[in-house]
């Protein structure tokens, strides 16, 4: 029973981190009808921005001067701004130029951008951060190529006391708070409603007078902030962060979004949780399951694509010719 409850907590935590990136996919897909494949890398970039902000602010003595709570908020704000900016860059340079071409183009160009983000993180950002403060872990990583590209230790910034239980609780609370804020934003504000309008019927949204360009820009800012928080929670939960972790994190998030129904934000929450549960319980109950958790998780996704392609709460879409 004890094992079950601890697995349950891990599953929820895993689900929380997947949910945020899945919602990012949903929001972008909603307004653009394009899968922005670099979401995972943007989130990892967010995690690294936090470490960067932490090392810089810590050596400047700013973080010690303010309460821990404020310090985390400051770092989160910095990461959110950077990720929002990266989101806008992604839109401007890898999606907008292909507006009129087939949807395959932005798909490829966002994958390419993801690779660029990953490599820049690995080649430039991580060594710089490492040289400012020696927080490199001693973890031996067989995949690391050069020094300084080892997994980066994520300092336990969330829980003041350093306890894991407190950290876990805060991760869940932050995710819940973000979901509530997102719900209010989507349903009560004009920009949120415009985003939904574009997602449901773009032509009618245009005819209604929605400023589509401004709404898309806003979506990338919101999405960037969500991804920054997602990256922060993920790296805090895993206690390490890898520059090349974006591909796996991104594909998990994308899978969660597909399982939930790509245009449905709440489906993404369910999809994320489902994926988290499948993974954690596979690792927990199947002997040697840790090695198979990803395989089983993606198997579930494949089953969904085969038997319920519209997702858990998605609606069947009929493509008009």
């Amino acid at each position: 029973m004890e094992m079950f409850s601890s697995l349950l907590v891990s599953a929820i935590l895993m689900g929380c981190t997947y949910t945020l990136v899945a919602i990012g996919y949903c929001l972008f897909f909603g307004v653009l009808d394009v899968v922005v494949f670099c979401c995972g890398d943007i989130a990892i970039f967010g995690g690294f921005s936090i470490i960067g902000a932490y090392t810089i602010l810590y050596s400047a003595g700013v973080l010690q001067a303010v309460p821990a709570f404020v310090a985390v908020l400051i770092m989160l704000t910095i990461a959110a701004i950077l990720c929002a900016a990266l989101g806008l860059i992604a839109y401007q340079f890898s999606i907008k130029p292909f507006e009129k071409s087939s949807t395959l183009m932005p798909l490829l160009s966002t994958i390419a951008l993801g690779v660029v983000i990953k490599e820049v993180l690995g080649l430039v950002f991580q060594p710089v951060v490492n040289s400012i403060a020696a927080v490199v872990t001693s973890v031996d990583d067989p995949l690391s190529v050069v020094g300084g590209r080892n997994p980066q230790a994520m300092p336990n910034l969330i829980a003041g006391s350093g306890s894991t239980d407190e950290r876990n609780l805060i991760i869940i609370a932050v995710t819940l708070a973000i979901l509530i804020a997102l719900f209010l934003f989507l349903n009560k504000t004009k920009i949120g409603l415009s985003m939904q309008a574009i997602s449901q019927n773009k032509e009618l949204a245009l005819m209604t007078g929605v400023n589509v360009k401004r709404t898309i820009t806003a979506t990338f800012i919101i999405g960037g902030i969500l991804l920054a928080v997602g990256g922060f929670l993920l790296s805090s939960y895993q206690t390490i962060i890898r520059f090349d972790g974006g591909a796996m994190y991104g594909s998990k998030g994308f899978s969660a979004a597909v399982v939930g129904g790509l245009k449905n934000t709440w489906g993404a929450v369910i999809g994320g949780m489902l994926l988290g549960f499948v993974e954690v319980f596979t690792a927990g109950y199947i002997p040697g399951g840790t090695q198979y958790q990803n395989i089983i998780a993606f198997l579930v996704v494949i089953l969904f694509i085969v038997f319920r392609p519209e997702g858990i709460i998605g609606e069947k879409s009929i493509e008009k010719v």
Partner: peptide
């Protein structure tokens, strides 16, 4: 388009329809 709408042109199009997943009230407010 949004500028033209703000200037006072509106379209009622049967083919374009409504925001089907939103309530009637939200449709009107939007």
């Amino acid at each position: 388009t949004y500028k033209r709408i703000a200037a006072g042109i509106q379209v009622a199009s049967a083919a374009t329809g409504t925001f089907t997943k939103m309530s009637v009230e939200t449709n009107l407010k939007l």
